[in-house]
Design a protein around this nucleic acid. Structure first.
Lengths: 202, 202
DNA sequence: CTGCCCTTATGACAAATGTCAGAAGCGGAC
DNA sequence: GTCCGCTTCTGACATTTGTCATAAGGGCAG
């Protein structure tokens, strides 16, 4: 009985190539492919794979969202996230959502196949480098509201707009932004946004 | 006589998979692989491929830089850029550097093989969608200095720091940032940076 | 040669932002 | 029950930005 795999990646080139390589392993069979988040979900429900290999960035819904839905709707399916740019925040979020493995695309296909088997056997795996990043980034020092307001500041909106969107007074928004920037150690809110992003705090 | 190809991509998974798929085409042979910009350059000089397939984002030097060097040092080699996230600016820069094709990773391996042959035969190719983006984004309305200063503002640095790094007076920096923001139609420099990025102007 | 645009700069003013002190309500911890 | 931290607000102030007018020098096109 072979191991049924779902592949989801928006890059046709990579998905196809990957499918071809995994097909060389005779205990693995790719039963479905998807190019978008929603499609991945639908495919998973239709084909009930043993392991879902999801790209982190896909149109529609990212890998972590799909993992969340999958956990509820198809609990027997083990989920792996494969990514090119792994931010600590994504890792943390993914792990919280029950994702079993988080691997960078720099691994070889051989290794990926091993990891798929390992995950299917019930093991977990996180790329050591990504794990180190996540640990060194530490926990967010921001309160819930500080993080929320900082996020609204991300696209360079002026305080007035942030205040409106957050239903807060402008003074309050300025206080939050100020304290967030101080906690992060940034010169101003824009640098704070950038640093918080890098550390996976937003 | 088969067509010699160089593959450069920092993602081992993809590079390996791609190499395997291209090997299935009996008129193509992958003579070298590279994971970084400088490595790609060295490999190209050592193996003198007919076509170089470069990823846009690689550690060390991006695909366009490599293409620039290759044009000088190995003029007979046709260069193709393959990318996941194609920004209009990259396309323009790449074309100016003599790149023969600019394709998104959403194409199939089959199609990529066709394009490699086509490029080798002397044709050019640009993904229609990317081309449309580039055209609709239009030309940058920014002067050289405006763009330069805007770039220095990208990480949220205060005016004083930008002024120092650009060796300009603070007043001049504020003038440039102001006019750049006005030309772009942004509320402030931070939003301007974001929009300019999206449109490939920085 | 005369415009015109780019570069660089000043000074001045208005507006936005950052910082601080203080205060009130609310919920959880001890 | 009291204390502490989070949320929310106001008001005041200093600092930073954004905007505008104005100007001088350089380069290029007509």
């Amino acid at each position: 009985m072979s191991l049924r795999v779902l592949l989801a990646d928006d890059e046709h080139l990579i998905r196809g190539a990957l499918a071809a390589l995994l097909a060389l392993e005779d205990d693995l069979v790719v039963v479905a492919e998807a190019a978008t988040g929603p499609e991945a979900l639908a495919m998973a429900l239709a084909h009930r794979p043993d392991v879902a290999v999801l790209d982190l960035q896909m149109p529609g819904a990212d890998g972590v969202s799909v993992a969340t839905s999958l956990r509820d709707e198809l609990p027997g399916c083990r989920v792996m996230i494969v990514t090119s740019h792994g931010r600590p925040g994504h890792l943390k979020r993914a792990l919280a959502m029950g994702v079993r493995a988080f691997v960078p695309k720099t691994v070889s296909a051989q290794r990926l196949a091993e990891l798929i088997r390992s995950v299917h056997a019930g093991n977990r795996y996180v790329d050591p480098e990504l794990a180190a990043d996540a640990i060194s980034a530490g926990d967010s020092p921001l309160t819930e509201r500080e993080a929320e307001v900082l996020e609204l500041a991300a696209d360079g909106a002026p305080v007035a707009e942030i205040a409106e969107r957050a239903s807060l007074s402008q003074g309050t928004v300025r206080n939050y932004l100020s304290s967030a920037a101080i906690k992060i150690g940034a010169e101003n809110r824009h640098a704070a946004v950038r640093l918080a992003r890098e550390r996976g705090w937003v």
